[in-house]
Design a protein around this nucleic acid. Structure first.
Lengths: 403, 403
DNA sequence: TTATTTACTTTAGGTGCTAAAATAAATAAA
DNA sequence: TTTATTTATTTTAGCACCTAAAGTAAATAA
């Protein structure tokens, strides 16, 4: 009788085991059972299959004596070589290319200066193909397969259709990109918003566990956001949800890079801060529409050193941010709002005004118990998140691809 | 060997059958299989159990010949007597009590004028117990069981903890209520926001199918909202998500009933419209802080008849609403925004300014393909939604309670 | 050396599904 | 009228997968 696999429990349990091992590192079979609510008999059966497929391996017993009585646990762990993913972070005038292994570790990372703003869609496509091909040639020895490619892009992307809808790094719009890369490299291609990648990494931190409704705000050249509901990014109808930067502070307010007025981004992003400062202050020379980290550091230093004009700029930014966050609290009522991105360098200068604005805007019942915290910024987080997402998305294929 | 029911597939399939019958009315076993992706052999087995439990019954063959060849379908349908729910809608100075049967139909409905604003929490509790007891005594003959009670409340409620956090109908806050009612009536008590109830009803309409991300805005005395993601209301950390009425149009703007300034509600709710009008226009006497339907009708008639002051008020309300909706589009990117509630009476007078404001606020990429529509208002919808939600929540109990 | 403890594996039995076969109940055709 | 065909439902047979319990393995404690 033909097997008709409508029952997905074995598949689900197997994925759960793989993901537990990725999250926790080496785990014994008993513990895998307990963590996933399945019997250890089932874990024995699943791990036998995974061992046979080469997706996991048994870890040799610890040299230091295992503590306690009884038969020692035999830990199993993912075989890092079982698969790899290539992730590309696309930002303004820079791309980062990384290789991650099946266990989720970064194996290789490189940065390239690229004039992204002047590229056409086809040139971008060609460039990505070149970079990925080069990495594959150099870095993919020893891996059983390339599970997938993940593009992490600043701006609005439609993961579903695989198109970049609108990115500050690019001068063109509505560019389908996933399909062509998938064709070229014969693997899954995932397109993700950079804030969603970062939110995934942050949500996994123990400090932020127990936050089923998590909002991550990314301050930087622009302002991005990710809303994680039970760990999964809320995307909306076509991926343009969570565009906090373009939510409104003030009708007819300051001019935003999007062409409209009064967006939060027009007050609290790097370009907005620098624009407001450039008129009054004596700041380092450079492209004032795309201020460098040095330029921004100079500005924040002025504020921290007590310059009243600089302070006023950060106060106004904090106020805009606060009113924006008030809307987030009213509309999403998250457990936690995390503020990160390179722009957190200015968080101390904005914080007081931000909290004041939130209190001004919202009654206590709607502020609720939401924690609002900032979080140190690490430019590698995006790619770490992209690796995790790419692996998660391709675990099913990896599983059936090696059967 | 003891049965350990970790496998939930039979349970899931049984619930799916019950819910299909509730949504679709009488359905044949073959079709139940096709609709739920299970074999008709399984449907035979499930329906035999449900028949035996009295939850469904076979419908006698149609008198007019069934069309086509072959053995005619035997339709099965829910037994409406298998269970009932009592739902109470709590609004300002009025409660509505309805009884719904297992198939989701309204069996009985009554309205009571009640001075809700002057009640204490205990008085409300007592009042509800009286009304529910009375209804049970009169209306519950013939039902196998009372599956549950649902309270639909305007304002912020925490379904999880069963407390009314903040309601414009009540002068007290943070009142736990579900637990006491559950104790008293020995059944599940569900606490729901009224907008979520209505959104559930609207989402079921065929016009609005294929909208996995649906936002419903309720205009009325206040302004409420519901966000349905894949058919389930997004609640946030403690049920206060989707508070569109208190999201901001303008920092330091008009005074809102919440005590803060610049909320959308302070521009586009009934009380805000009437407040703005009362200064300039000759309107019917009455409580201008709680305008009646007649008072509001008089106001909108003035606007529709061309009175420039009245028109200006609706234009400004439309603009505030539009800017608010722009934030909804940027943050939720829904497939559809439905505007309903008693306040839709003024929608035509607000619509142009609203669309203008949205276009003003958002670039095309972020407006996306979201449909923005109004929808006729029916005051019974809340209770219909509450019945559906109460049944949905208690189907599991009904199933195991009659085994 | 033996008892105890803990981990893992094997065995036996159960649930619940599906495909296929059997049965039921109608219409269409001969 | 009888037979063939069609469609719905039920029964049967068999499979996948899980768990509890029993069995085995590998350690420490007595």
């Amino acid at each position: 009788m033909a097997l008709t696999s409508t029952d997905t429990s074995r598949y689900d349990n197997t994925l759960a085991v793989i993901r537990t091992l990725r999250d926790q590192g080496p785990v014994a079979r008993v513990d895998l059972g307990a963590l996933n609510g399945i019997s250890s008999a089932t874990v024995t059966s699943i791990s036998a299959e995974l061992l046979q497929q080469g997706l996991i391996k048994e870890r040799p017993p610890e040299t230091p004596r295992p503590t306690g009585r009884g038969r020692p646990k035999t830990l199993v762990e993912l075989n890092p070589q079982a698969a790899c993913v290539v992730c590309i972070k696309l930002s303004i005038n820079e791309i980062q290319v990384v290789v991650g292994d099946f266990s989720g570790q970064v194996r290789h990372s490189e940065h390239h200066a690229v004039p992204t703003l002047t590229l056409s869609a086809d040139e971008l496509e060609t460039l990505l193909e070149e970079k990925i091909s080069a990495i594959c040639a150099q870095q993919l020895n020893g891996f059983q397969r390339l599970a997938g490619i993940c593009l992490a892009v600043q701006g609005v992307v439609s993961s579903q259709s695989g198109s970049i809808i609108w990115s500050p790094a690019l001068s063109f719009r509505n560019a389908p990109i996933s399909a062509q890369l998938a064709d070229h490299f014969h693997c899954s291609v995932l397109l993700e918003n950079d804030a969603n990648c970062i939110a995934g990494v942050l949500a996994a931190k123990p400090d932020y566990a127990d936050c089923p409704n998590l909002v991550v705000i990314m301050l930087g050249y622009g302002i991005g956001m990710s809303v994680l509901i039970n760990g999964v990014p809320y995307l909306g109808a076509n991926g343009s949800a969570a565009e906090f930067g373009h939510s409104k502070y003030q009708p007819d307010g300051a001019l935003c890079a999007c062409g409209k007025r009064g967006c939060i981004e027009a007050y609290a992003s790097d370009y907005a801060l620098y624009r407001a400062a450039a008129d009054h202050l004596n700041l380092p020379a450079g492209d004032s529409a795309h201020p460098s980290e040095q330029q921004m550091q100079a500005l924040i230093q002025m504020a921290l050193n007590g310059d009243p004009s600089a302070q006023r700029i950060y106060t106004e930014a904090g106020r805009a941010l606060g009113y924006g966050i008030a809307n987030i609290l009213a509309l999403f009522n998250p457990d936690l709002v995390l503020i990160t991105g390179s722009g957190v360098r200015g968080f101390d200068a904005m914080q007081a005004a931000m909290h004041h604005a939130i209190d001004d805007a919202l009654v206590a019942e709607l502020r609720g118990a939401t924690r609002i915290e900032s979080c140190a910024w690490d430019r590698d987080m995006t790619c770490m998140g992209a690796i995790a997402m790419a692996l998660h998305a391709t675990d099913g294929e990896t599983l059936s691809g090696t059967e």
